[in-house]
């Protein structure tokens, strides 16, 4: 349950809850996450809460990049769980920016294991402005 996939490097996490649940790796616009036992529920599948935390981290990271590092907060997240993922699975997502306005960013992402989508997410982010 170890290292980064080829060509990916670990991203520096700052939020205590993200440090607690990570690590997350990145290569260009794609993020990767390896499911460990402690991310799973008692049925041995990755917990929905862990997947939504991963969505918040990665879509938030993409907002940060797309806005040239403008702080933002999650306003809304809509999640659909299509298929279970298990310990050992590598989950990958390439977040997509659907629309950006002066105050908001609309994001979406398909989270995949081996090319198959396990979760789809849409989220709205409020930009807080730069100092």
């Amino acid at each position: 349950m170890s290292g980064a996939p080829q060509g990916f490097s670990e991203i520096k996490l700052i939020d205590p809850f993200e440090i607690h649940t990570g690590p997350v790796w990145r290569k260009d616009g794609t993020y990767a996450f390896r499911v460990a036992e402690h991310h799973c529920n008692m049925r041995g599948v990755v917990h929905g809460g862990m997947l939504m935390t991963l969505a918040d981290m990665t879509l938030g990271g993409a907002v940060w990049d797309a806005t040239d590092r403008e702080p933002s907060v999650t306003l809304n997240m809509q999640t659909q769980f299509l298929k279970p993922a298990k310990a050992g699975d590598l989950i990958e997502v390439t977040p997509e920016l659907t629309r950006r306005t002066r105050g908001f960013v609309f994001m979406r992402g398909d989270f995949k294991v081996g090319g198959e989508t396990v979760m789809t997410v849409q989220s709205v982010w409020k930009l807080l402005g730069k100092d």
Binding site: D15, F17, E18, T21, M52, A55, D56
Partner: peptide, 8 residues
């Protein structure tokens, strides 16, 4: 963290 609230 929003992820923790969604987990809850």
């Amino acid at each position: 963290h929003g992820g923790l609230l969604m987990t809850f």
